[in-house]
Simulated scan of single mutants.
Amino acid sequence: MDFRIFTEPQQGASYDDQLAVARAAEDLGFDAFFRSDHYLRMGDGSGLPGPTDSWTTLAGLARETSTIRLGTLVTSATFRHPGVLAIQVAQVDQMSGGRVELGLGAGWFTREHEAYGIPFPAKRFGMLTEQLEILTGLWGTPLDETFSHEGEVYTLEDSPALPKPVQHDPLHPGRAGVPIIIGGGGPSKTPALAARFATEYNQAFPAKDTIRERFDVVNAACEAAGRDVSTLKRSAALVLCVGTDEAQVRSRAAAIGREPEELRRNGVAGTVSEAVATIGALRESGVERLYLQVLDLHDLDHLELVASQIIPQVG
């Protein structure tokens, strides 16, 4: 199983805070550093020092790390024109030497759009679908050809389709592209979209007893599309709160404003032995990659505990 660190910087984190976590995660051997793509704090609090843009942040991290993979979980299709996003992602992939992954979703947080003047259309699934068509089309267009797209939302005419990512599209060998992550709990549209475009299907904060069933749905979508189900990585994102003893568990839960028992039900939480058991059960449910949501970005000892005492037992 792959283990990735997943952060929520909109809750109040500077670029330097994120850099410290990314470097620690890299040094400790985690597979990747991911961050959310939001512009407004959720819940109470000031949100100081304020939001950081995800792709600006990842560009900086691309130059200040060397091995760890970098990405978003997930970028909102409402935030950027797909042509601009294609350029941003390809450039950061170049800057990182081919370590970028793109999680892309339809967006959901109405308030952040209102706060920063970002349009938030009621119907966004078609927008998301077209963005995926455009992104993969731009990256996959041969160097001596142009790309055009005429859809209900976007029109592109004779684009030179540059720049190209360093990586190759895992679903289309020989074409430039980056791994794409699609997630969600929809019963049909999202699984079908994942089967068509994604290299990874992610469940974000699912009820643990629904994980296997939701993977079965996306497996069926792959089969319906004629795709080998083994080519789609299955992942989950869950909040992390572990400690060497109960006192440390409770201290870490208090630091993020959560209750230990709620975290045990819904996340990877508790003592080391409890976390090991939880991860084992997640593996049995079909999880191949686990995103550990770290909400206290100043507690780097939390990462060290996972790397030194938990992953060796389950990795």
Rank of each mutant, 00 (worst) to 15 (best):
I182L: 14
R23C: 13
T199F: 06
T129M: 03
A254G: 06
L85G: 04
A237L: 11
I182A: 00
G50L: 11
T7H: 06
R264D: 07
A204C: 10
V272T: 14
I310E: 03
A86L: 11
R80L: 02
I256H: 00
G103S: 03
A106E: 11
G270V: 09
L48N: 13
W55T: 05
P119S: 10
I68R: 02
H168Y: 05
E133L: 08
S54G: 01
A192K: 11
W108H: 07
A32V: 03
F197P: 06
I256W: 03
V153R: 08
V306F: 04
K233P: 03
A220F: 11
Q18D: 05
L305D: 01
T210Y: 12
W108R: 07
S188N: 09
V242D: 02
H172D: 10
A220M: 10
Y15V: 14
D158L: 12
A77K: 02
I182M: 01
R41I: 15
A207C: 08
Q18E: 10
E304G: 11
P165C: 08
A20T: 10
G177V: 10
G174E: 10
C241K: 09
P206H: 07
D169F: 00
R214T: 04
P170V: 05
P119M: 08
R264W: 01
A106W: 04
A62Y: 03
V74W: 04
K208N: 12
Q313K: 15
G12K: 09
D216F: 00
E152P: 02
L303E: 12
T65N: 03
F6D: 10
R212D: 14
Q313H: 13
E152M: 13
L58M: 12
T56W: 07
A115T: 07
T190Y: 06
L104E: 00
T244S: 13
S14M: 13
L143I: 11
D228W: 05
A194Y: 00
R35K: 13
L193F: 01
P165R: 08
E150V: 02
L28W: 01
G126Q: 02
R99S: 10
E284D: 14
P160F: 10
P163N: 06
